[in-house]
């Protein structure tokens, strides 16, 4: 659906996007992750035809955005970083204008506007001037604008910025729901959001793609040994000794006392060894009750920090 080949954007001396390649399949929700200034917005602006690339090309459903811009733009709904709203218009007037420039006519226009306003829950503010709306509503009007004309591709630049937690969950669910019949690229620097919504993640840093995979695979690929965090009732020395005697334990480290009479321990096992059962049995025999045990898989945060600070290629 979307194909990006050797896309490059250079501002003067600064390389904002450095020959990136990726593909998005129809119906896929792709997360675009990266620190501020990594080139996320620039890439999105090129994909939507707002700015031109210095090199390479971007195809939307096989149509080059630079060669046949109008044809390609018809298939894209775009929510930029700052929603492009006219403060002096009411919500209805604004969506009406957007429908007009996207060439939606007649009865379809009214119906699709109603549907979209219901979908993003802005029907109750339809008559108000946009400049008087709260940030959350503005963001949703921006999203409504992107949905007008039912484009097959949605490009959303930080769609949940400025929303309260309840709204964030609503918008995430909406995006998931839209993902059933749309191809979506979504950028964010909020990691749980990406892992909650996206099927695939591209991490971009300094204009280059540093990782591209499903959120699960990314976690597995980097966290190649399994770590456990435990809270055990008992004395530090005895508990540690009991754990270290177990087979398959790489090391065990005490983390101090957080609850009186207990000890927090981090245990790392050898690769591909599940030590949870032996550990439980051993502690049980020695009557050191395990009060808490949780696995310390690498979160997306860890991966993000790792790939963006080390610039390590991850496959």
């Amino acid at each position: 659906m979307i194909q990006v080949e050797n896309l490059t954007k250079i501002y003067g001396q600064h390389v904002a996007v450095d020959s990136i390649n990726f593909k998005v399949e129809p119906g896929e929700i792709l997360g675009f992750l990266g620190p501020n200034g990594a080139g996320k917005s620039t890439t999105m602006n090129i994909l939507t035809g707002y700015i031109s690339a210095t090199g390479g090309r971007a195809l939307i459903n096989g149509i080059d955005i630079l060669e046949e811009p109008e044809e390609a733009k018809r298939m894209i709904g775009y929510l930029p970083e700052f929603p492009p709203l006219y403060g002096d218009m009411t919500v209805t007037e604004y969506l009406d204008f957007v429908s007009d420039i996207k060439n939606i006519k007649g009865a379809d226009k009214k119906k699709s506007m109603e549907k979209i306003m219901d979908l993003v829950k802005i029907s109750d503010v339809r008559g108000r001037l946009i400049k008087n709306l709260s940030k959350g509503y503005k963001q949703r009007v921006g999203l409504a604008q992107a949905l007008i004309g039912n484009p097959r591709v949605l490009i959303l630049d930080e769609p949940t910025v400025g929303l309260d937690p309840k709204q964030i969950i609503e918008i995430r669910n909406l995006i998931k729901q839209l993902g059933k019949d749309h191809t979506i690229i979504l950028s964010s620097h909020i990691l749980p959001e990406v892992s909650a919504v996206c099927e695939r993640v591209i991490i971009i840093n300094k204009g280059k793609i540093v990782a591209s995979d499903t959120p699960e695979n990314l976690s597995k690929g980097l966290g190649n040994s399994s770590k456990l965090s435990l809270r055990i009732a008992g004395q530090e020395k005895q508990v540690l000794r009991a754990i270290q005697e177990l087979q398959g334990v790489k090391y065990a480290e005490a983390q101090g006392v957080r609850e009186p009479g207990t000890i927090d321990v981090i245990v790392e096992a050898d690769p591909n060894v599940d030590i949870r059962k032996p550990l439980f049995n051993a502690m049980s025999r020695a009557s050191y009750p395990i009060l808490m045990m949780k696995s310390m898989d690498m979160t997306l945060e860890d991966i993000f920090l790792q790939v963006t600070t080390q610039e390590k290629e991850v496959q």
């Binding site: 707002y50 930029p80 700052f82 492009p84 709203l85 006219y86 957007v98 420039i101 060439n103």
Partner: peptide, 12 residues
């Protein structure tokens, strides 16, 4: 106001 983003990314 960055509303040019709307105009320039529309099919006009």
């Amino acid at each position: 106001q960055k509303t040019d983003q709307l105009l320039l990314t529309s099919p006009v």
